[in-house]
Amino acid sequence: MNIAQYTLFPTAIGDCCIAWRGEVVVAASLPEKTPAATAARVVKRTGARRAKPPPAIDRAIQSIIALLEGEKVDLSFVACDLGEVDAFAKKVYAVTCAIPAGETRTYGDVASELGDKLFAQRVGQALGRNPIPIIVPCHRVVGANGKLTGFSAPGGVETKLKMLEIEGAQLGGPPALFDDLPLAVKPQK
C-alpha cells in the first residue's frame, strides 16, 4: 500500500492540512495553533509525508479555499477513503455531506434521517471522530434550535461559528421580521 502524503494550505481561517493516497483524500485537519501542529495531527493519524499535491487533490484544496472565502462550493466531487470508519459513521457522513453550504441541520435531524431521532447522541459521537472535516462538513450540524454545541476540531465552537458565518448560515431559527432592516427603521421595543 502506498504511503499517504500531505500538504498544508492557507485559508481564511488559517492553515489547513490535507492528506491523500493517490488521488483520494484520507484525512484533513482544521488549523491548530501553529501550522506544524496542524500537520502533526494529520501525520499522527496517517503517517503521511509532505508532498506536492496531484491535480485532483489540488482541485480539492482550491475548492476548500473558495468555500472558506464564502463561495457556495459543493465538495461532493472529492474522492475520500472512509475505509476505517464504522458503518454507522459512514451513514452519518453521507447525510452530512448532503447539507449545502450555508445551511445547517440538527443532530436530531441527521438522526431522524437515519431512522431514529434517538440516534442523535451517536450522530454527535460519529461527527466528533470525523477524519475529513470541511469535506465532510460536520460544522453544519448543530444542536437543537441552532445551538452551537461541542465541536472537537481545533478552535472548538469558535471555529465552527466562524465557518458557519463565512458560509452565511442562519443560526437559531428563522430571522425575525425586522432583522434585515437598517437599525434606524427597526421598531423600538
Rank of each mutant, 00 (worst) to 15 (best):
L82P: 00
P187A: 10
V92M: 12
L177P: 03
G173I: 10
I134P: 02
I61C: 02
A37G: 14
I99F: 11
C138V: 02
A66T: 03
V43W: 03
T38D: 10
Y107M: 04
V43I: 15
D74G: 08
V142F: 02
I18A: 04
L181W: 13
A176C: 10
P131D: 02
N145V: 02
Q125K: 01
D15M: 04
C80H: 00
I99V: 15
A27F: 07
R50M: 13
P53Y: 07
Q121E: 09
G156Q: 02
A101D: 10
T7F: 04
A56Q: 08
T34K: 15
P55Y: 02
E103Y: 14
F178C: 10
V25N: 01
R129C: 11
P174T: 11
I61W: 00
P100Q: 14
Q188I: 08
V92D: 05
G156N: 11
T34Y: 11
K72C: 06
A48G: 14
K160A: 11
K72P: 01
V85I: 15
G14L: 05
P187H: 11
T46G: 04
L82Q: 01
S152E: 11
E167R: 03
K72V: 04
E103W: 06
E23K: 09
L181E: 14
E71K: 15
I65Q: 13
T11R: 13
E103G: 00
I64V: 15
E23T: 12
S76N: 15
A19T: 08
P174Q: 11
L114K: 07
N2S: 14
K33I: 10
T159C: 14
Q5V: 06
W20R: 02
R41G: 01
P100K: 14
P175E: 09
R45D: 14
A120T: 01
F77C: 09
G124M: 10
Q188P: 04
Q5N: 09
C17E: 03
R129G: 02
S112N: 11
V185A: 12
G172S: 08
G22W: 13
